[in-house]
Simulated scan of single mutants.
Amino acid sequence: MAKASNTLMALEPDDLLQSCMAGDSRAQFRFYERYSPRLYAVCLRYGRDEGEANDMLQEGFIKIFRELSAFRGEGSIEAWMCKIMVNTALSRLRKKSLKFLPYVEPPENLYTDEDIIGALSASELITVLNHLPQGYRTVLNLYAIEGYSHAEIATMLDISEGTSRSQYLRAKIALKNRLEQLKKMNAR
């Protein structure tokens, strides 16, 4: 048994993928072990806490294994799986009746102090992001991290493009305000 396990550990990603598609449960477990940390990070950006992120991860992996044969090899398997995780997270958020605020004009001078962000640890930054309203955080993740356009986000979330832009700007304002508060607290 240990020899088979070691063999799975040494498989290249394409061979591991083929073994997973063939229904090899040990290969599926190894596949999960290999990719779950990266995909869990995606889920953490959308989930309110670790429990919700874990639920998203499990649901997403069920979809991944169910749809693995649909992967056509166009692009990386990780990018394909990240897209599934984002869609899984959005689906869960829609079920919770994700709320968006109406469009507002942004202030003229809106920049986040990158020195403040650089001074935060990853866990501190995640904590700050998790305190944003869900609509802000979702659009911020989709636009700034995942790279979707506001038009794509509008379609994905069934909102107007203006609402997507507004949520993004509100998220930046909220982040800037919270980071300024942290800067003041750290200066004491």
Rank of each mutant, 00 (worst) to 15 (best):
K3L: 14
K3Y: 12
A4V: 06
T7S: 12
T7I: 11
E12I: 05
Q18L: 09
S19P: 04
S19I: 07
R26S: 12
R26D: 04
Q28L: 08
E33H: 11
R38N: 09
L39Q: 14
L44V: 13
E52Y: 05
E52P: 00
E52N: 03
E52W: 06
A53W: 11
L57Y: 10
Q58K: 04
E59R: 09
L68Y: 02
L68F: 04
G73T: 00
E74Y: 15
G75I: 02
I77H: 02
E78D: 11
A79K: 03
M81V: 01
K83P: 04
N87H: 10
T88V: 04
A89I: 09
L90K: 07
L90G: 08
R94F: 15
K96G: 13
L98T: 02
K99E: 13
K99Q: 06
K99P: 00
F100M: 08
F100E: 02
E108H: 05
T112G: 04
D113T: 00
I116K: 07
A122W: 06
A122Y: 07
E124H: 01
L125M: 14
L129N: 08
L129T: 09
N130R: 13
L132R: 01
R137H: 09
N141W: 03
Y143W: 00
E146N: 07
E146R: 11
Y148E: 04
S149Q: 08
A151I: 11
T155D: 15
G162F: 01
S166L: 04
Q167W: 14
Q167L: 12
A171S: 15
L175I: 02
L175G: 00
K176T: 15
K176I: 09
K176F: 08
K176R: 15
R178G: 08
K183C: 10
K184S: 10
M185N: 05
A187H: 12
